[in-house]
Design a binder for these strands. Sequence first.
DNA 1: GTCTATATGGCGATAGAC
DNA 2: GTCTATCGCCATATAGAC
Lengths: 210, 210
Amino acid sequence: MAAKEKNTETMILEAAHRVFLKKGMSGARMQEIANEAGINKALLHYYFKNKEVLFTSVFRVALGQFIPRLQSVLTSDLSFADKLTEISIKYHEMLMQNPYLPGFILQEVNREPEKLITQFKDSGVDKDEILGLLQNEIEAYLGITIDPRHFLISLVSLVIFPIFSMPMMCGLFFDNNKQDYKAFLEQRKVLVPELLLGGIKAMGNKLKSM
Amino acid sequence: MAAKEKNTETMILEAAHRVFLKKGMSGARMQEIANEAGINKALLHYYFKNKEVLFTSVFRVALGQFIPRLQSVLTSDLSFADKLTEISIKYHEMLMQNPYLPGFILQEVNREPEKLITQFKDSGVDKDEILGLLQNEIEAYLGITIDPRHFLISLVSLVIFPIFSMPMMCGLFFDNNKQDYKAFLEQRKVLVPELLLGGIKAMGNKLKSM
DNA sequence: GTCTATATGGCGATAGAC
DNA sequence: GTCTATCGCCATATAGAC
């Protein structure tokens, strides 16, 4: 399984993953996937009867990569700040290796919103547990009670969007210098937890006064 | 210009805008655009010689919508906090009316990164002026010196991503109840400036110790 | 300017040999 | 399981009448 050649189905799935993530469902070509996998179109259809089936297989894997396993980090014995740093760094690394992942998932969820719900149930992630754990941490660490979804959605926004929008941000604010932007992101992965903890505290005070 | 019927070219551009933003370049169909505009395919090609040209016209308009005119707000005589609230609210309103805009722009910038640079120069937005204004405000208001791009990119992440990822967030954390999620976003548009101001202060301290 | 009809090419999918 | 060859459709684009 290590050095030897992988079987055809795996090679197809990996090739399809690369092509679909970059081009999307309608932009991808079966021919390109076949080339990428080193086979021909007919064999593609032998393993996956049509484009939709192949796409769905790729989507399932991609969704699993995209939705992080937060429970294990949140139930560890780290401090809240260290847990956040851990999440930020791990997510940063994963996204830097799969820059097309967020766009791919979000585009497809737009195309067929119901698909997400179905496949999410199979993923083994318990959203209520995560939100409960988060709320406890926020109360213990910051002494405030807020909807943990504000925290979580702020966190993922700050982690995902700067990477997801790399070509745009890099073009607009870094003269298209990718190395500079990567160094900037590298800084951010430890800064984001600080920003969040400081920010949520301020946000909690605002919420009390509303 | 008000109530009367618009000319054909405008109708085509508006129809193309709707279809391209929802489906993207490769997902959009010239037939669908023609239907949407109430004409036929041949007339489409009379006004725009091919799909690529039509798409580029739509992209130019969309980019103008997407990149906000920050200068006027930043040079107004509001307090920094009020300026941020103004930006957050205006951007929120615009994005709620054009939910597909971020995905459209970012997808296309991925496809052809050079296009952004060219078209951005024509837009009349001066990035150095904006970053300079921001840096001054941050120094005056918070007493810290940081790279203003950290601030700006955090701001747009917190404003754009929760709206852009509405179908996903709504599905994952709001049982697909769109009204609930919209109310949640409505809250956020005034909370985000608080979060940012509190957060950047904390981040500035962290940066000093690095 | 606007239409109907048609050309042209590309893409997903299948047939059938090996 | 893997290939070559091909079908049939659909999307872009054009020709040409009005």
